[in-house]
Structures are given as C-alpha cells and as structure tokens.
Nucleic acid binder design. Structure first.
Length: 908
RNA sequence: GAGGGUAUAGCUCAGUUGGUUUAGAGCGCUUGCUUGACAGGCAAGAGGUCCGCAGUUCGAGUCUGCGUAUCCUCACCA
C-alpha cells in the first residue's frame, strides 16, 4: 500500500496527543520503579507561549520522554505561578474597563474577581504547551495561589520568623508609584534616558551673598534635603565645613558635611543630601545622623512634609519648582544630561527610591548554603561555567537581604498581626491572638484589637518552594519521599537567582524536616540534582526576543506552519546548552516585526517528510519468503550488519550526549544517521530492482531497525515517530512508541564500519568521475582497482564488491596491475582506481585536477616530514603518535606516487 | 566602574584531559539530474591565515599573557 508523498503534521499531531492523553501515559503514581522527576519552572499565569518557553519545555519533554522509554517512572509536574504584580495589574485594568475602581472594593471582592480572571485566562499557556507535545502529568497541575501551596507559604513564613531570619524594617526600597508597591531589585530595569542636570545655588547661612552650587536631576527633591556634602579633601570648600546652607524657597538650614563619597571631579563638587529619596544619600545620612524627610506620597505626589506643591505629581512639581527657583535667583544653569533611569518591569513607571517599612528575609546564611550545594556538586550546573554568575551574585559582599513584602492583594497575605507597637506572627488569627494575650497580659483582648498586615509576600516567596509543594511536601510525605529530589531543573540563566538559587535554599532549609533524616541521608535534600541552563532566544541581530520589540515570531503560528516536531527540531538544532540561540526568523524590513518563518524549523518539517517517504518506500515492496539470489542476499546481509553496528555506536553516543545534556549534538547525529546512513545508503543498498520483490529476512530486519530509530528519535520528535511506528507493522493495543523501550547499545566493530565507509568512498569516487565527465548515472561503467593486498581483501569480503557495483552502477570491478588506457583515475585512501571511459577524456581538465591534488598531497607530506624530522618530537612524543605520523607519511607518499603515475599516463 | 562569556566556512554552530591523514556539521551557494519513496528530493563540488600579537610545549583551533571586537551580568554617581 502506498501512502501520500506528503507528511502532514496537523491531523497527526492532534490525533496522537489525544491518544496519549486517553491512555493516560503522562500520569505518574509512585511505584517500585526508580523515579525520574522534573518540575516545570512555573510560567506566569498571565503569559502566553513564547520562544523561550518553547525551547525550555522542549528540552524538558525530551528528558522526560527518554526517561520514560528507559523504564523510569517519569513525572513532569506542570503548573503556573500567580505573578502578583502582573496579574493584579491585569485585573485592575479589567475592572476599570467595567467601571469598577479597586479602591471601592474590599480585599475579598477583589480576590474574587482575580480568581475569576485566573480561571478564565490563566490556563492558556498550559494549553499551548500541549500543542508543543509536552508530556506533562496534567493531573498534577499546580498553581502557587491554590490553598495547599498558600498554606505552605504561611507555614514557611512563620517558621523563618521564629528562626529569626525574617524581620521587618525601614529600608530604602524601589517604589513603583503606579502599582503602589515596592519592587525587588530584579524587577527594576535601568536604562539610559535623556534628562537635564539643574545647577542650583544655596545661600550660606549668616552671609549675604555667599552660595554653594549643587547639581541635580531631580530638583523637586530639594524639599527633602537635610545636608550638603563635600569631599573632606576638597580645598575649595574647606572653609564651609561646619557651616549651614539654606534650602531654597523653604529656607531650612542644613549642615554642610564632609564625606568621602563625594566625587570632587563631578558636577560642582557639592552634593545635596536627600536621605529619604536616594539610596546613597540614605547611607550618608546614616553616617552623619541626618534627619530624614519623606516628601513623597505612595502615588508619587508630594506630601505635606514637602511644604510646597503638596499633592502635585513629582513631575509636575519639578516644572513648578524650577519656575520658582529661577524667579528667586537660585538657578545657575541647565545642562542636557544622560543618566540611567529605573523603571518598573511591569508598569514602566519611573521608580522612586523610597524609605518604606518592609519585610525582609536575611540572605547571608541562605547564600552560603546555596553556594556550598553547587560547590560540593550536590547540585550540578550544565554548562558548569554558569557557576561564575551564580557565585558573583551570592558571594558575601554582593548578597542582599530579600525584600519579600509587596503592597498588593493578589498573593499570600503576610501572617503578621499588630497590636499597638507589637508584632505577632502566626499561622492564623487565633494563634496570633493567643500570643497577644500572653505578651500583653490582657486576657480580654479580642480579634478586633488586632490588625493584620495588609501586604502580601513576593510571588517568588511561593515559587521557591515549588519542588517541595507540588508534591504536597508540607502536608504528607508520600509523594515527596518518592519524587524528591527531582532530577533536573531546566531554565534560562536569566532567572538563576529568582528560581535556581532560592529553590536550592528552600530545599536545604526544609528538606530534612519534611523527609526525615534517614531519607535525606540516602537521597539528599537538594531540590534537583542537575540544572540545565538554556540560552536566551535572540533574533538575527542578537537582540533578546521580546513582545515589546515585536522581534519574536508567534510560537503557535510556527507550530501551525512546520508542525510541533518541525519546530522542536528547529529550536533544538541550534541550542547548545547555555549558549544563546540565534533564532533564524527573518525580520520584515517594512514593519520591523518578525515573520513567522524559520529555515531551521523547515528543515525539521522536511526531516519528517523524509522519514515518511522512507516508510512509504518500504510499504511499496513486495515481500517473498523464498531466498533471493546469492549476490543480493550477500549485499543485504552486509548492509544490515553495517547499519546495525553503526546504530549501536550511535546509541552509545546518544546516551553519552544526552547524559551530558548535549541535546543539540544528539539530534544532529540522529538526523545524519537517519537521513544519510539509513535513507541514502542503506535503503539504496537493499532496494530491489524495479518491481522485484524483497526477501522477508531483509525486510523484517529493516523494519526492526527503522523501529529502533523511531524510539531513539521519539523524545525529540514525538509525533512523527509515533505515526511511523504505527505504520511499520500491525500493533497490539498499547504497543506504542511513547512507552516502548530505549534500545541497548549492542556490540560494534569499528574496523568493519570503516571498511564500509571506505567502500562508500569508492562509490562516491565513481560518482564524482561521472559528474566531472558528464556521464549519466545509469550508464554502466567498468572500473579497475590497482592491485593491492588491502584492496583485494576488502573487495573479497562477502557482498562488498557486489554492493559497490550496485551503488556505483558498475558493469565490472576488477583488479589490474597496469594503467588502463583512456581512463580517469581517482584515489581513495591509498587505493587507486581507473574508470574506463567510452569517450575521449578531457586531458587538460584531468591534468589540472591531478596537479591540484598533487600539490595538496605534497603540502601534506611536507608538514609530516617536518614533524618526523624533529628529533625532539620523535624522542618525546608517545610512540603511538609517532607511529601515526609515520603512517601518514607512508600513505601520503604512496598517494603522491600514484598521482604522478596518473599524470604520466595522460602525458601531462 | 566591577566581573563574566564569546571570536572557527557566506550564515548558525560543533570541535569533550593539547596529537585521529594541513579542521567538521547543518543551512546557503555552484554544477548535473522530469533517477518508480521523497524536487519538502538525488548526486557531486567549491568555500577556512581557527580575531591579532607574544609565550608555554616535541606538538596549539585547544593552554597562558597582552591587545582588539562583540555580547552579557551586577553596580551606578549628583
């Protein structure tokens, strides 16, 4: 039966995904097999599938599918995180469109809307992963805001508080006036923007016309100034030490202090100090015991403390104050200036450094734990070079306490209750009340006397527990004890700190409590053994692909065009671990947007088609039980032995490559094996003459080998392999590629494989002669090999000569001691062949070709002779290496002799 | 400002403790094929001072130093 010559991924992929789901192949329950587990780095609920997700999840799917084939109990846990700021922003926007203001809603009502939104839109990315073929255990899908995971967050918070690792404090933080929340450093993006530098003069107290001039980009903050600083070594300002300056417009007298921080070269050498609104000023303020005046409200308007422009937005106030300052004679000059401005990753609002009361997690001990885990190789990085980045973030002088509170509602509310000045941290209100009663001695306190902290914890404060909580680790230990530690975490290096480091910290902090000493002693307490860092997906100009740039092709549209298998191939074939991948989607020059095209994905699609047609070929053959003629049988056996042995070697390579996460190498080697060795060579070797049948033995062997290839390729390209698998033979129910067995690498003989490679080179040599002389592929040729023991031995081995004759379309292949008249010669290794021509040879062209070849070989021999002429080399290099050089020399010399003979034969 | 990565064919990249015939792959390119599986194909070919300089070594694409280019991370200055 013949199939269509076109493989169509669309129906096929849907069909098999549905089938696998129906069979429940992705689901895992603990049993007596060894587990292989991966937890997905939870994508943001508001997200849609992008190139980074595709790469990341393709890698995870490959690892999990291979593990499943290898007989492990494979479990890949999917899910999403609640992304507090992004989601809250979306919900607020949705409500605004409905005419509802967040401030009019109670916390409970708001959360109701938010959960509704999440139920409606939050699963999109998971549906998209299914299109990619992701074999996640969907029954285990988790969400960081679901009750069980939230309970764990609260428990952990209380635990850390009781251990003294969480504290509340006034700190300079990144304030987003639009979202009205504090952000962690990682959520602020700094970039260069055009600003102005305003030079302003402050009068010295007690003088009539003495001034100091400062420069600032934020003139409205002068209202919060509490000092002027100069460098202690600066001769220009020595006389001012200890004096006071008057803040323009409001006339507050502020001290002139000396601090090494001030750069004498920059600006005027005088620096205004606003401790409430600048990180560095705050530190200087601490050193000099300066007053802190907070002149901003949470929405970015000026506060009462500013005295002027109260209630005006900071940018409007800037304009207004400049007008007043100029009129009052304080403006010296204005310069254009470029500086780095921090904006919120989520709202794009300009971040204000602001002194706020926040909750922090002490990082010093955690950082040491995480560093140690990787240093001791309890957690291994792939590629290992990522250690540098990890270390530089976590080393003592760089690590900072983690600000974990956020001024939002969407998230786990901080379990802290206040009564007067006292804080009570507890898992619930009742316990907090008990604590309060004890602490105050007032037994008549009621819940209404307590007020709960309004804030929630950072999203990452729930996702760092992910490897523990997705297995319900804080509740019961069954699944956790079985699946934990997970085998590998697959993620981009850009979130090394958000996830990798913090998950490691959490694993070491609670692993032993949750699993028990014995289990931990046996299995370890790290959340994962390996971390595979994928690169960033970039466009052809090496820019990170992002929605705002529009330089990312649409993931689903690519799948639509090339099939999931094609896209998986495309993503992977250029994705060496850790290296950023330049994705080849072209950019439309008119719009600057990425087109949904990719040559690499197209290559993947064509690869599917190639395999489909190989299947097609096998299906068209008539099979007979009678033996075929001896010569054909010999070729078939030789071809089969060769492919089988080469496949064994391939399996060995694949195992090694995949264990080292060299997935890109692995898929390329498979690609070449299937396309070149199997399709181009093997199938042509065994292909019967037109309308002739094939013997059952060869046919069955071919099917079995094809089947093995499909298993090997299955993790990479699951759909096409399952489809081919089912077309190779009739299958019993449940005999599916996805749950078959990863083949063992059997024995192979490198020498035998090399012999066939040599025979293939002879075939290519003949084809080259045809090409150069315009001889048709099908015109039978007479070829003579120059007599040599080696060549005779090669051609005498069973089936070899017939195979070469069949592949090269020869009429005869025999040995000769003499040169053959009117022939073209070629050399393979050290063997020389003459191809008899029925036409005049082109003498000039032949001379040119041979002369060029001679030059190459002479150059080669020269370098080898130089090496061997070096006494030190001969004396010091290992015998094996010297031996090899001698062989190189002998071979090269032999080739030169043969080329010279050929030149003489033609008469050049 | 501090630190890190990368530099190999036109493009994207391999090259795993220094030695495997003066460097490999895929794509692209050139030439020839309406070849009874596949033009989404077949066959063959061209194409490289391994960024530069110096060093270590019998031997360097591979190790070291300096330089150049480029990308990134962190911190950022009024």
């Amino acid at each position: 039966m013949s199939l269509s010559t076109r493989y169509s991924p669309k129906e096929t992929e849907k069909k098999w995904y549905d089938y696998w789901m129906e069979k429940d192949y992705f689901h895992s329950e603990p049993d007596d097999r060894e587990p292989y587990s991966i937890v997905i780095p939870p994508p943001n609920v508001t997200g849609v599938l992008h190139m980074g997700h595709m790469l990341n999840n393709t890698v995870q799917d490959i690892l999990i599918r291979r593990a499943r084939l290898m007989g492990y109990n494979a479990c890949w846990v999917p899910g999403t995180d609640h992304a507090s700021i992004a989601t809250e922003a979306k919900v607020v926007k949705m409500l605004r469109e409905k005419g509802i203001k967040k401030s009019d809603l109670s916390r409970e009502d708001f959360l109701k809307y938010a959960f509704e939104w999440k139920d409606k839109y939050g699963g999109i990315i998971l549906d998209q992963l299914q299109k990619l073929g992701a074999s996640c255990d969907w029954k285990r899908t988790r969400f960081t805001m679901e009750p069980k995971l939230s309970d764990a967050v609260i428990k952990v918070f209380v635990d850390l508080y009781n251990k003294g690792k969480i504290y509340r404090g006034l700190r300079m933080t990144n304030w987003d006036p639009v979202a009205k929340t504090v952000l962690s450093n990682e959520e602020v993006i700094h970039s260069e923007e055009n600003s102005k530098l305003y030079y302003l003069r402050y009068k010295i107290e007690g003088t009539e016309d003495e001034y100091v001039t400062i420069a600032t980009v934020r003139p409205e903050t002068i209202l919060g100034d509490t000092a002027i600083a100069v460098n202690p070594k600066d001769e220009r300002f020595m006389h001012l030490h200890g004096k006071k300056a008057l803040v323009p417009l409001i006339g507050r007298a502020i001290p002139i202090i000396a601090d090494r921080y001030v750069d004498m070269e920059f600006g005027t050498g005088c620096l205004k100090i606003t401790p409430a609104h600048d990180m560095n000023d705050y530190e200087i303020g601490e050193r000099h015991n300066l007053e802190v005046i907070d002149t901003l409200n949470e929405d970015g308007t000026l506060s009462e403390a500013a005295q002027l422009f109260v209630g005006k937005d900071r940018f409007e106030a800037r304009k207004l104050i400049m007008k007043d300052l100029e009129e009052a004679g304080h403006l010296v000059k204005i310069e254009d200036y470029k500086n780095k401005v921090g904006r919120s990753e989520r709202t794009d609002a300009i971040i204000e450094p602001r002194l706020t009361l926040q909750w922090f997690l002490k990082m010093d001990e955690f950082a040491v734990t995480a560093l140690e885990a990787v240093k001791k190789d309890e957690v291994s990085f792939f590629p290992s070079g990522m250690w540098n980045m990890f270390y530089s973030w976590l080393k003592e002088e760089n690590v900072r306490d983690w600000c974990i509170s956020r001024q939002l509602w969407w998230g786990q509310q901080i379990p802290a209750w206040y009564h007067d000045d006292q804080i009570f941290v507890a898992e619930n209100e009742t316990e907090a009340l008990e604590q309060a009663k004890k602490a105050t001695g007032k037994n008549d306190l009621t819940v209404s006397d307590l007020s709960r902290d309004e804030d929630v914890v950072d999203t990452w404060f729930s996702s760092w527990l992910w490897p523990l909580t997705v297995f319900d680790g804080f509740e019961k230990e069954n699944d956790l004890a079985y699946y934990y530690p997970t085998n590998v975490l697959v993620t981009g290096w850009d979130i090394m700190f958000f996830w990798v480091a913090r998950m490691i910290m959490a694993g070491y902090e609670w692993g032993e409590d949750l699993l028990g000493k014995e289990t931990v002693a046996k299995k370890g307490t790290m959340p994962f053994h390996d971390v595979y860092f994928t690169g960033m997906v970039r466009d052809s100009k090496k820019r990170k692909m992002s929605k705002s740039l529009g330089n990312s092709p649409d993931a689903l549209s690519l799948i639509d065009t090339y099939g999931a298998d094609g896209v998986r191939f495309g993503m992977l074939s250029s994705a060496a671990a850790g290296n950023d991948i330049i994705f080849d989607a072209p950019i439309d020059p008119k719009t600057g947007m990425a087109l949904n095209e990719s040559k690499l994905c197209d290559q993947g699609k064509k690869f599917c088609n190639k395999m489909w047609n190989a299947l097609n070929l096998l299906n068209t053959w008539e099979i007979v039980d009678e033996p075929v003629d001896a010569s054909t049988a010999a070729i078939n056996k030789l071809a089969g032995d060769w492919l089988e042995q080469k496949m064994n070697r391939l399996i060995e390579h694949l195992n090694k490559q995949m264990d080292e996460y060299r997935l890109s190498d692995a898929i390329m080697e498979l690609y070449k094996f299937i396309w070149s060795d199997f399709c181009s060579w093997y199938l042509e070797m065994i292909k019967p003459a037109y309308q002739a049948p094939i013997d059952r033995e060869t046919y069955d062997r071919s099917i079995a080998m094809f089947e093995k290839m499909m298993v090997l390729l299955h993790p990479f390209m699951p759909f096409v392999t399952e489809e081919v698998w089912h077309n190779l033979r009739d299958r019993a129910a449940g005999d599916d590629c996805i749950v078959s067995h990863w083949p063992e690498a059997g024995d192979y003989d490198n020498h035998f494989i090399d012999e066939i490679e040599l025979a293939k080179a002879i075939v290519s040599g003949v084809r080259d002669v045809r090409n150069n002389n315009g001889i048709k592929q099908k015109e039978p040729l007479k070829v003579h090999g120059q007599t040599s023991d080696d060549l005779a031995e090669l051609l005498e081995s069973e089936g070899m000569k017939s195979m070469v004759m069949k592949m090269a379309f020869l009429e005869s292949l025999d040995m000769t001691d003499d040169s053959i008249d009117n022939s073209v010669s070629f050399i393979v290794k050290t063997h020389k062949f003459f191809v008899e021509l029925n036409q005049e040879i082109n003498k000039e062209e032949e001379c040119q070709r041979l002369t060029k070849e001679l030059e190459y070989q002479e150059g080669f021999v020269r370098t080898v002779e130089k090496k061997l002429g070096n006494e030190k080399f001969v004396n010091n290099a290992p015998e094996k290496v010297v031996e090899l050089e001698r062989k190189k020399l002998a071979d090269g010399t032999a080739r030169i002799k043969k080329i010279k003979e050929a030149l003489a034969d033609i008469g050049c």
